[in-house]
Nucleic acid binder design. Sequence first.
DNA 1: GTCTATACAATGATAGAC
DNA 2: GTCTATCATTGTATAGAC
Lengths: 222, 222
Amino acid sequence: MPSVASPPDTIEPAGSDQQPAALSGRERLLSAAVAQFAAKGYVATSVRDIVRAAGVTAPALYYHFGSKEGLFLTLAREAVARVKQVRAEALAAGGGPVDRIRRLCRAHATIRRRYASLSWIVDQILSGPPEAAPAFDFRGLARESLRLFEDLVAEGIAAGELRGCSSRHLALALMGTVEVVVRADVFGVADGKLDESLEGMLDLVLAGAAPPPTSAPVPAPG
Amino acid sequence: MPSVASPPDTIEPAGSDQQPAALSGRERLLSAAVAQFAAKGYVATSVRDIVRAAGVTAPALYYHFGSKEGLFLTLAREAVARVKQVRAEALAAGGGPVDRIRRLCRAHATIRRRYASLSWIVDQILSGPPEAAPAFDFRGLARESLRLFEDLVAEGIAAGELRGCSSRHLALALMGTVEVVVRADVFGVADGKLDESLEGMLDLVLAGAAPPPTSAPVPAPG
DNA sequence: GTCTATACAATGATAGAC
DNA sequence: GTCTATCATTGTATAGAC
């Protein structure tokens, strides 16, 4: 019974691309597939490419995953699981709504950089319409994220940490912030400046939603 | 001598997908290719798909563009030209720095929705790394856009329309705003609300960079 | 669970007639 | 400038031995 993510880091081990021969064929296939899909896209990656990189032969792939698409879907499910996990962790840490908003942004940005290959694969499907890859509902994940931000914003408004504004608009702006940091290399932003850029953008966006400096501030309800 | 974009709207005519039989084979090929590339991605689109949709045969494609890649590059060059043109128009209209910033954002968002297919093809190459499509330097275009926003922001700060803040960070936040509007469908935002969303987000982000309401405001230098 | 060997469809591209 | 016919290659996938 195939269960994903049992080994600590099947997918995308830190750094180089050699695979410890100790890994099973199945694991080597998963690992090789992320790299190949990310580098060339789903369609452009052939089964031959994957099995060669994994050091196994084609029938091994079909034995474990049934098809190229099956392998992809396994990867996709793992990606979703990781996002949900990171989300939960970021929220569990507590703090005020704005603190949690910032943490959630950082968490999103971090996981998308840490698992850049997986993340790109997801993007491929999200932005790119059908047939570019097997059907998989990543949109649900995106909508969930937006909803999460909206709820946090609403909470922040209720708590007086944010001024009354459209929670939808602020939530979208926050997601845009994360989006742009993740694709920052496209704009020529140095890797070392990504954290700084994210914080700077968050400062700006959240400043736009800061409550007006009234003479009688509302520190906490009640 | 192949020259692109001579006819008013070779690429992506409004609405449906029928092609007026009056168009030349070359034009029909271009038009069909955008649609197909956008729908399935570069690699997943076969030469046969394109020529069938264009109502011509394979040798016609090779006669005009030399290869599938050549056809793609022709499209890519046209996309870049359109972006530069729209940019120029948005800036030429004059007004204060903040006005031009807003116009530039709207222009970016509009053109990317108007030429959604072309735009998606560009994204495919921008976000997705090599081999997913022929090499083409769209990054230069993205960097140019960022630079443009930075300059406008700097100008806005100098003019007192914006408070002193990192022009890089504000520029990135603005690009994120556009980015998120373009991909708004991913988050389940209704098409009819895109304009409203963009304006709302711009209000928020620009509010975060608004100059402090000093007792002695600085309406204009000198 | 992994291999060798192979089936068979689809691909990008071309030769040469008109 | 467009066609018919075709090539070599690569694609996904499988049968059957070990």
